[in-house]
């Protein structure tokens, strides 16, 4: 229906890299949600979290909500919320360190390192989005001279009843 774009460059876009990165993390949340819901047993065995399958499933719901909210317009609080979710995941995964199985122990260490990385990235994105979207404190130009009335402000008495009536019912004839 409308003109197809012939060309355009990333420099000419309204989206900042932080918003693009946030969107990526939002879609990653959906991927994690699917994994948590579809394979909680396998995840539990990998990280020594046997018996916590229902908790892992609930993380699936949490990640799905995180994905939805990151893709909404409230992206900054959503990214902070995602970072908070990372902290909860780290706390849960850390309980896997008690395992006697060396393979599971190694997996937990790798997982914790990855989650720490996610936490850092999520926090950086959230902080950047916040700074991009916030006005400087005390920022306000002086518009006190912009009345818009070149001949001075109107008074209530300046609008006669007849003029108000005319303003309400101007000529309707089209064309």
């Amino acid at each position: 229906m409308n003109a197809a774009t012939l060309s355009g460059g990333p420099a000419d876009r309204s989206m900042t890299w932080s918003l693009r990165a946030a969107r990526l993390m939002g879609w990653a949340s959906f991927g994690l949600a699917v994994a948590f819901v579809a394979a909680p047993g396998r995840i539990a065995r990998t990280f020594g979290l046997e018996g916590k399958e229902n908790l892992i499933r609930s993380f699936g719901a949490q990640e799905a909500m995180a994905g939805i909210s990151v893709l909404s317009t409230e992206v900054t609080p959503a990214m902070w919320s995602r970072a908070a979710g990372d902290v909860i995941h780290i706390g849960t995964l850390a309980t896997g360190l008690r395992t006697d199985d060396s393979r599971q122990h190694r997996n937990v260490v790798v997982g914790l390192a990855a989650l720490a990385g996610f936490l850092l990235v999520d926090s950086l994105i959230a902080a950047k989005l916040g700074s991009e979207r916030t006005r400087s404190r005390g920022e306000a130009r002086d518009y006190s001279g912009r009345s818009g009335f070149p001949k001075g402000r109107p008074s209530a008495a300046s609008a006669s009843a007849a003029e108000r009536q005319q303003a309400r019912q101007p000529a309707m004839a089209a064309g």
């Binding site: 774009t5 012939l6 355009g8 000419d12 876009r13 989206m15 918003l19």
Partner: peptide, 18 residues
Amino acid sequence: ALVWHGKEDIRYDTVPDP
């Protein structure tokens, strides 16, 4: 023209003349 590509994604693009 300024072209809508999605949520929060407006771009300064080259498009066909009307």
